[in-house]
Design a binder for these strands. Sequence first.
DNA 1: GCAATTATTAGATAATTGTCTAATTATCTA
DNA 2: TAGATAATTAGACAATTATCTAATAATTGC
Lengths: 96, 96
Amino acid sequence: MKQQDVFKAMADPTRRAILKRLQGGALTAGEIGAAFEITGASLSHHFAVLKRADLVRTERRGQYIVYSLNSTVVEDLARVLFDLFPNRGGRAGDKS
Amino acid sequence: MKQQDVFKAMADPTRRAILKRLQGGALTAGEIGAAFEITGASLSHHFAVLKRADLVRTERRGQYIVYSLNSTVVEDLARVLFDLFPNRGGRAGDKS
DNA sequence: GCAATTATTAGATAATTGTCTAATTATCTA
DNA sequence: TAGATAATTAGACAATTATCTAATAATTGC
């Protein structure tokens, strides 16, 4: 997990919205884009960032490209956050 | 919690390092700065971002200003992340 | 093969951001 | 009150980034 890439990816509201949309299951780039006002090119840029952070996985299916969540990476991120703050009952990722 | 401010704040490695340093307890601006190569002015900028995100609290003590973590906000953030990803055993912030 | 569809890549531009130096504010102490 | 110390604010600048239009790539179906 490239921490910096993940944090950077999560810092943009559009990308968080994309992740949110993928909660319900895998979607094609077009299906995701339908919910946003920005161009497909901009969307592609965001997809690239999310992929670089390993937050989503892609699979080509015919002319479509299907995106799906990679939950584990964001779980890792959540663990990092918990670790940043001690004295809270030692849950996920308890290193001490 | 202003989600966007928090995510933006966490996106910078210097700011994450500052939070990390504060794990051991409250520190003055100068004590924190001693660990970084950047100028005090740049540090101040980062402090401002962290404060806007409500990730740190400040208290003036004489000529010093003391910074401390505000754990709850980052815990909230971690919860948001967990919520982004369903089907993982429903822990913190379980909304469903 | 060719047109249509889906998506990405290339290149340009405006906005944001991290950094710096210089100036300012707040506090302490002699 | 004056000087020293701690920290922030102001203003400038370079790097990054989100967005766009136009061009390119991959696939399907005629």
